[in-house]
Each structure stands twice: as C-alpha cells, then as structure tokens.
Design a protein around this nucleic acid. Structure first.
Length: 657
RNA sequence: GCGCCCGUAGCUCAGUAGGAUAGAGCAGCGGUUUCCUAAACCGCAGGUCGUGCGUUCAAAUCGCGCCGGGCGCGCCA
C-alpha cells in the first residue's frame, strides 16, 4: 500500500515544511499507521463488496471503544443500515463481517449488543506498525496534508496604549498552539498580531509624553513619513526613528497618569485632542512621536512573547490599514453593499436585529466621517484574502465578540472579495479567565493583572518548589543554582501555558496556582517529569544520540527492528503511541488544543504505568536483548512523541528534573 | 425584550458528526520503595448528566418549554 505520495511530490513536502522547525519527510518511506483509518477503509471495502455502489454511501467510520471488553474499535453502521434494509441489525453485522478482509489487522470481529461490530487489533500488527515508524524523524513519520492551505491566525491582539494583561494569555497561547499544529500538518501559517495602535487614546498618550515623559535624544528628523503605520517600516532601518527614543518603565502606570492628567486639566485634554487631529491629518511631528511611543510599547509586548516562546509574529497594527479604509468604504458603497443610514454608512447583513427588532448595521463609516473597528476588520479581511491569499482565516478572540465576527463574515460574503474562491473564516471564541474564587481576574485593588507579573510569579513559584526539594535529602538532586533557574523558567512557563491549553477554549475557567503547578494530575510538571524519566532511561541504557543513531542504522534495510508486545503494559504503550495519528485528525477538524493535552496526559500516564516497578516492566536490565531493545524502542518513541506533542503546544521539555 | 453560550461526582473539567454499565484529575480513604527518578504506581468510594416533555432501535449529545448563570444587542474594540 502506498503510504507516501510519489517522489515527485516529496520535493514539495520538503519545501513546504521549510521553516516549521521539523525535518522534512524525505528519506524514509515509512509512516505512522492510522489504525482507525485502516479499519475504516477495510470496512468500506466490505460494504462495497456486499452492496455494490450503494455501499459507498454507508457511514464506514469506526470509533474507539470505551470499554476494553468491546475491543479496540467499533463500528455502529449495522444498526443504521438495518433500518434501511429492513433486516435485523445483528444479521446485517454478520453480512458485513462475511465480506470483511481484515485478518491481517484484527482478530476476528465480533458482533455484540444491539449490532455493534467490535475490532481488536492483533499484537503482530501493532508491532509491525511501530517498527514502521522512521527512526530519525522528529515527525515520527507523520506526513503533511495533501492539500496545504495558506492560513492566517489572528492572535494575541494587544493594545499598545496599555500593557498586556492576563486577558491576552489565551489568544496568544492558544493562537500559537493552533499555528504550530497547522504548520506541522504542512500548511503555510501566518501568525498575525492585530495590534491596537490607532485611536483617540494615542493623542492623550503622546501629548503626555511630550509634556511629562522621559523623551531621550529627541532630534528633529529630516525626511518625511510617507505612510502611516510604523509597522510597515522595516525595523532598524529607519532614520526617523533612530533619532528619537523613549523609555517607559511602567506602561500601565503611564497610561493611568496620562488619563488622570487628562481628566484633571481641560487644557491638557484640549491639547490631546489637537494631537489626535494632527495624527489623523498626518502631522509629521505627531506621527514620529506616535511611532516612538508604539515602538516602546511593542517592546514591552515582545518581552512577553519572548518569555512565552511565541515567535514569527507578524506585527501589523490597525494603522496599517488606514489608507485602505476610505477605499473600502467607497467600493462597498459603489457595489451597493453599504448604504447610508442615520448619517452613517452601514452594511446590513441578514439575520441580525437591534434591541428594537430593526436590522442591525455593521457601521463602516461613522456619521462624523470617522472609521471604527468594523471598517478596519473588513479592510484586514480584504488584505488577507487578496494580498496574502489566505484560504483560511482563524480569529482567536474573546467570545464577547462572537456576534461581531458573525456579522463581519456575513458582510464578507456580500463583498465578492473571494471571487468564487473558497475562503474559510472562523472565530475561535476564547473564554474568560476567572480568579480562583470565580470572580473576574483582577488585583485586590481592582486593577488589571499584568501578564509580565503573572509569568514572573509562575517562575518564582517553580523556583521555590525546586529549592525546597534540594533541602530535602530524599529528593535533592544536587542541582546548581543555574540549573535551578533554567528549570524554574521552563516549568513555570510550561505550567501556565499548559493550564491554558488544557481547558476547552470557549469556556471561562478558574486560574489556580496550586493546580497548575501541581506535580499530580493533568499538569505540565507531571508530563515534563514523564519526559525526563524517558531521557533518564535512554541515558542509563547508554543510548546517547550517537548510539541511537548506530542502533537505528542497523535496522534501516532488510533487518527490521522487531517489536515484541507481550506484557499488557507493552501493548497499552503501543496502542497509545499509534493513537497519535487519530488525535491529529481530530485537531485538524476541531482546532482545539485541549484534544492534544488530553492525549499527552494519557500518553504520560500509560508510560508511568509501563515503567512502574509494580505494574510495569523492566527496561534496561530486561532479558533477552530482543526484549530489552523492543522496550527501549517504546521508551524512545514515547520520548519523541512527548517532545513533539509538547512542542506543538509551544512547551519546551527538560532532560532532567 | 431578542439573540448566542453554559448548567455533568464535594471541587476543576472531559465526553470526539446520538451508540453498550457517563469519564479524568484534584481533594478523601486504603495500599505499594532490597529494583531503571515514589515529582511515581495500584485500589476504594463518589453522578436521577439543571428540569419537564418530545424525536428513535438508541439521547449528556438532537427539538421544544421552564429554572439558574454568563455575554452581546447603531456610531468603543
């Protein structure tokens, strides 16, 4: 059975995967088997063999069984089919089985209950499937999708007027995880940081900067600004910006001070408004200061992104779309998509109503001539579709904006911008972060919690835990302070990220330090620990990287690795490893990182049982050599898989804990 | 008032296009260290899936009503 496309396509794969951080699938023709898909294909063949063309329309999907008594997979198609054929479900099941050719994969299928067909995978087939996983691939032989798309992930979206707060955690972390997963699957992904860099508050901030701020090296610049949008300029290559700089230590406080000043002094407020006007009319001095301010604020954001390990962001502010706004409005007016209503230019997508039951507008030009967020969002959509050639645009944004995105997407369908091309737009609504007492996440004084403070605390808490361990003679591992710092950094950040990803993204959830940093349960530390144990085994078995290479190289040609699956723990391990392909399918369909966290937790648990002194098997001192090498292979695959899975979530691993 | 989301074990949450006796983790109780990291493992206990009808061979899952919570509903993002 051909598991990879022809060699002509393989060059494409390699190119597409460039820049994802993963090795291209090239040398090996092996891949990881999708057990569920295999059975489903055989079932489909059987249905066609039995019913002819009609068999094609029957649902041949199989699902994993909940109870091991029912085997590994089950098909429920006989029950539905029985109704159509006016036969008994169990008879239908028997007919299906009679046409099934599956004895190389499974034990003889069994009919149970109301007409379920149960499949149990043969150990031999599990072993064969494991041995097919290529040894050198950090992708574990998982091939890219055959229909790669250009995907824009709209994520993070900070507002440069203020510092990033806990509310940005979900859209940033989940957006990055989704981007990583789609990249891994072979799509071209653009992580788009839709930054709030434009609007009335910037007038106030810039005026405050001029009057009270710590402006350094302010030099009147030569030249002129050609276009709004500091983000359009190539960083570090701008003579205007290099001539002015500013340092704001506490951006949040700066905003609060400016706002107080604004409320207290009407003349300052007046100067602020003039500043806004200046900005909008392209006044050079105002614009330079605005850029300087945005640069400084963006530096604060990137400190956070660095801490979180979020890379390859396209920082593109709202200002980027400024010049497009009047063009878009005119176009939509000309096309008759937008109409004037109560002095404003509006689009009225079908199916949306106001409080009074009137059609609800998407306002693309205010009655005063200004533009709001809806216009920017539309312009951004157009840019992503027509300039970036996006096939799929994913917004990871709070669920409060659900209706706005529904209207936006409805409006998009009226514009004709996709020109018949299929462009999928999807809003992944994120839930709110609540305090552990269920209240909105605020400081005791009612202020917002800075993201930076939160992440710092996570690292600090991890560090004090590690230091506590070192004091305990039973647990002390003799780490140096540098090692402790490094581990605390990884564990702290991993804990916060994992806790985010663990929850279903749409629902509100409670933030609980003790829970997320706990070593017990579905947490990052538990999983990092499982990974560290794998690494420890491989070290103890003296399978250094070089040794693994030699060990694997012996098996590349005719001499296959033989996997021996006898002990229940070995069999469980094998099934769990192969299940990964099914998890990826689900991820592709549902874009829910919690599907992956759940799997990784199951994998870790299965490994802990496999390796346990009571319930598991010996590995390093196992005899004979064939068993030892088979078990080492299971460990090695688990390690690679944990590393891969955590990597897809944006979480780093530790070789020791 | 209308629209959308949610209500599952004491707590936090899963439950994959309706499938068999509803699952995890935490907390609780009880076990396991001559042995590769006990930061672990095993076992026990714990639920009329908010509620009432309905759809069907089959409902936590689909439909309708009700109760309770959240969010949104014309120039803020």
């Amino acid at each position: 059975m051909p598991l990879l496309p022809s060699s002509a396509l393989r060059g494409n794969f390699a190119r597409r995967l460039c820049g994802t951080g993963f090795q291209p699938v090239a040398r090996h023709l092996e891949t990881m088997t999708n057990l569920r898909k295999r059975i489903s294909e055989r079932l489909s063949d059987a249905l066609i063999a039995w019913l002819g063309e009609e068999g094609r329309s029957v649902d041949s999907r199989v699902q994993t069984s909940q109870d091991p008594r029912f085997g590994d997979y089950q098909s429920n198609c006989a029950m539905g089919l029985a109704k159509k054929l006016h036969q008994k479900p169990r008879d239908v099941a028997a007919d299906i089985i009679a046409h099934l050719k599956i004895d190389d994969l499974c034990e003889p299928p069994e009919i149970a209950g109301a007409g379920f067909i149960n499949f149990k995978i043969k150990n031999d087939f599990l072993a064969k499937s494991l041995s097919e996983i290529p040894a050198q691939s950090d992708r574990l032989g998982i091939v890219a999708v055959s229909n790669p798309q250009v995907v824009v992930v709209d994520m993070s979206s900070p507002n440069l007027a203020k510092e990033m707060h806990v509310g940005h955690l979900r859209p940033t972390i989940i957006g990055d995880a989704i981007a990583r997963i789609l990249e891994f699957q072979g799509h071209t992904v653009h992580r788009l940081n839709h930054i709030g860099d434009w609007g009335t508050q910037f007038g106030m901030l810039i005026q405050y900067l001029i009057e009270k701020g710590n402006l350094l090296h302010w030099v009147h610049a030569k030249g002129k600004i050609e276009k709004h949008g500091f983000l359009m300029k190539s960083p570090g290559n701008d003579s205007l910006l290099s001539s002015a700089s500013v340092k704001i230590d506490d951006l949040e406080q700066f905003y609060i001070n400016a706002k107080e000043h604004f409320d207290k002094y009407p003349d300052f407020a007046e100067r602020s408004r003039k500043c806004v006007v200046g900005l909008q009319s392209g006044d050079r001095h105002n614009l330079i200061l605005w850029e300087v301010f945005c640069r400084e604020s963006l530096c604060h954001c990137h400190e956070i992104y660095e801490l979180l390990g979020v890379k390859n962001l396209i920082d593109r502010g709202e200002s980027f779309y400024n010049d497009m706004l009047p063009v878009v409005v005119k176009e939509l007016k000309d096309k008759g998509v937008a109409v004037e209503s109560e002095g404003a230019i509006c689009i009225f997508p079908e199916g949306f109503k106001t409080r009074e039951g009137n059609p609800l507008p998407l306002i693309i030009q205010k009655s005063d001539g200004g533009y709001g967020y809806a216009t920017t969002d539309l312009a951004a959509l157009k840019h992503r579709i027509t300039e970036m050639n996006a096939d799929r645009i994913i917004y990871v944004v709070g669920n409060q904006q659900k209706q706005h995105f529904e209207m936006l997407f409805a409006a998009l369908r009226m514009t004709g911008w996709t020109q018949g091309r299929s462009v999928e737009t999807v809003h992944l609504p994120t839930g709110m972060l609540l305090r552990d007492d269920g209240a909105p996440f605020k400081t005791r004084e009612g202020g917002t919690v800075k993201l930076k403070d939160l992440l710092t605390e996570a690292v600090e808490r991890s560090k004090s835990f590690l230091l506590e361990n070192e004091k305990n003679s039973d647990k002390a591992r003799g780490y140096t302070p540098e090692q402790i710092d490094h581990m605390a950094q990884i564990i702290g950040i991993a804990s916060v990220k994992y806790f985010e990803l663990l929850h279903n993204l749409g629902t509100d959830y409670r933030f609980d330090w003790n829970e997320m940093l706990s070593l017990d349960g579905n947490t990052a530390p538990y999983m990092l620990y499982a990974y560290a144990r794998v690494q420890s085994i491989l070290r103890k078995a003296e399978l250094s990287e070089l040794r693994i290479t030699n060990y694997e190289l012996r098996t590349t040609n005719d001499e296959r690795r033989t996997t021996i699956l006898e002990h229940p723990a070995e069999i469980a391990m094998a099934k769990m490893i192969l299940k990964f392909t099914e998890v990826l399918e689900l991820l592709e369909r549902e874009l829910r990182p919690s599907v992956l966290t759940e799997y990784l937790f199951d994998l870790s648990k299965t490994f802990s049982t496999f390796y346990d002194r009571k319930t598991g098997v010996r590995v390093i001192d196992a005899q004979p050599d064939s068993v030892r090498s088979s078990r080492l292979q299971l460990c090695e695959l688990t390690g690679r898989l944990l590393h891969l899975g955590l990597n897809l979530l944006g979480i780093s691993t530790l070789d020791r804990m």
